[in-house]
Design a binder for these strands. Structure first.
Lengths: 140, 140
DNA sequence: TTTATAAATGAGACAATTTCTCATTTACAG
DNA sequence: CTGTAAATGAGAAATTGTCTCATTTATAAA
């Protein structure tokens, strides 16, 4: 699940205005478990707020990435998609059929600490993706 | 480093023809340590083989991804880039300035095994990305 | 409540990226 | 050498991403 709770509050708290466009985008993000692309967010957002424009979606996603609330990722096509940057949202991706399994349990915290001190890098989040072949595709 | 050795042999062995276009692309991939985009590969490839076309670059990258020889990734812009899918090529990405540090040491092998049996997934490769703030950006 | 103001927006032009088609060429097995 | 399927280049078309600017609006402060 990629549900991100409380985006509106976090935006507000950071000093940004809560406009109908932004609320529509947030509603889409909070109610869709998928890994949405800009276009999907635009289309679903327009069902809630028809004047929503493409430019606003791009601006909003850029803002949310800056605030570390979401994170861009690639799955298995050339489309930029987004997942929550808070909490573990990691993937097993089948490179044959594109099936994506999400898992939360992740064991890289210690590695993160080591890298952080080695490179003097403040680590905000991480993404772990395994690529391979799913059960179904293994049969064919 | 993102150097990928032996692409030509692997392609050949999988039954694909070794054309001048493909050899030019391979040469670019094998001699450039950066995370190249389609456009960069096209431009550099045309220095080796001037008639190389954009369509061929797209087709070739798609093929190499299918064969698990390279892997698409995002850094800090909406451009699709590629790294070797063999061996560890992981990243620390600064979300402020885009600086990317690459590291090889990775500690997810056991996790990979667990996931593999839990989901009956054959895992071919993985990608680990840490996002945060680099030493320079922390100062400003 | 009203008002002032910076922030945010939509619309659409524009630019870049990606996909597709199709006639022609080519690598390579036999 | 030859036949063949695979691969290619060129450019059209579609999609995705960026930018500008006149207008609107959320919100803080009066």
């Amino acid at each position: 699940m990629s549900i991100i709770i409380g985006l509106a509050e976090k935006l507000k708290r950071s000093g940004y205005k809560l406009t109908p466009s932004r609320l529509a985008i947030i509603e889409v993000l909070e109610t869709h478990p998928e890994h949405l692309s800009h276009t999907q967010i635009l289309e679903d957002g327009q069902k809630i707020y028809p004047q929503l424009s493409r430019a606003t979606v791009y601006r909003m996603m850029e803002l949310l990435v800056e605030l570390h609330l979401i994170r861009p990722l690639y799955l298995n096509d050339p489309t930029q998609r987004f997942v929550s940057a808070t909490g573990g949202h990691h993937h097993l991706i089948c490179t044959h059929c594109g099936t994506t399994v999400e898992f939360d349990h992740c064991t890289v915290d210690q590695l993160a600490q080591e890298l952080s001190s080695k490179y003097n890098f403040q680590i905000d989040s991480h993404l772990l993706e395994f690529q391979g072949c799913c059960a179904t595709c293994k049969l064919s």
